Simulated assay, not measured.
Amino acid sequence: MHLEKTRRRGSELEDAILDAAWQVLIELGYAGFTYEAIAARAGTSRPVLYRRWPQRDDLLLATLTRFWWSKPVELPDTGSLRDDVIGFLRNANSARAHILTMISVQLMDYFRASGTNFSELRDKLRVQNRPNSLETMLTRAVERGELPDRPRPDRVVSLPFDLLRHEMLMTMRPVPDDVITGIVDEVWLPLLNS
């Protein structure tokens, strides 16, 4: 009996390509993130990839969007800013610590080749005009009366996650819980209330 292989199309094919691209990126880094390697891993041809993503960076952005930014970190809503932020940082720590350090290393060649950095890449991938998690938690805290309604610099708002990410990158491992609570209790909340 002869079984004919069915041809993948549309979203099924795109899913297979992006799955393959993610695996190639994780295993080989940006230097190995080639149309040839991805097409071979996906079981398709290079022209199929070129039709969808004419530039390698287009494929990289699609891959990162699918596997990084499309899976947001769970945002707690406990009724307390402190508990929300600690819960959010714990969720980010458990969901992203390993992958953040690995991706940061794997993308170094991309940053060198493109002359960009992680911040610029994040801005390309971020959904525009949508508040980030920390902005959402601050808005809720203001609505509950925990904080006065006043403008806060973006750098202050993003500080807890920036410090968490810094710890991850400096230690190349998940951040201990006492460091997370220290970021919130000893740095961020006093800064917000000053």
Rank of each mutant, 00 (worst) to 15 (best):
T101E: 04
F111Y: 15
R9K: 09
P174M: 10
E143V: 06
A31Q: 15
Q128C: 04
R140G: 07
L121D: 01
V187N: 02
M168F: 05
A97H: 02
S11A: 11
G29H: 06
W188M: 08
L147E: 07
L164M: 13
S194E: 05
L125W: 04
D83G: 01
R144T: 11
A37Y: 04
R112I: 14
T6G: 10
L164W: 15
L147D: 15
R46N: 12
I86G: 08
G182S: 14
Q128G: 09
V156G: 04
I183S: 12
K71A: 12
A62F: 00
A92F: 10
L169G: 00
H98N: 13
K71H: 14
A21T: 02
L49Q: 05
D109E: 13
L107R: 00
Y50S: 14
A95I: 04
N193Q: 13
D154Y: 08
L18H: 02
E167I: 09
M108D: 05
V142P: 04
Q128D: 03
Q106G: 04
E4S: 03
I183Q: 13
T63A: 03
R165N: 10
R51E: 11
T181Q: 09
N129E: 09
R90Y: 05
M1D: 05
L64P: 00
S94A: 11
N129W: 02
V179K: 09
M102I: 14
G145F: 03
G32P: 03
L138T: 06
L61E: 12
L3A: 12
P76M: 03
E167N: 09
P190A: 00
V175Y: 06
G32W: 01
N193G: 10
I99L: 11
L107D: 00
I17R: 09
P174I: 13
W53F: 15
P131Q: 01
G79Q: 02
L3S: 01
F88M: 07
P176Q: 07
L138N: 09
D154R: 15
S104Y: 14
Y110C: 01
G79L: 05
M172Q: 12
L169K: 07
T136G: 00
S80W: 08
R46P: 07
A92W: 05
D15V: 03
R51M: 12
S133Q: 11
R130S: 07
S45I: 00
V85N: 08
E4A: 07
S70W: 08
E27D: 11
D57N: 08
S70T: 12
R173F: 01
R51A: 15
M170C: 07
A31W: 04
E14C: 04
R51S: 10
M137C: 06
V187L: 09
Q128S: 11
H166V: 13
M168Y: 06
G10M: 02
M108W: 03
M1G: 10
R46G: 01
A20C: 12
V73A: 14
P47D: 06
A42T: 07
A16S: 10
A97W: 08
L192F: 06
P131T: 06
S11P: 13
D149R: 11
I180M: 00
L59D: 03
S104M: 06
K124T: 02
P72N: 04
V179G: 12
T116I: 07
R46K: 05
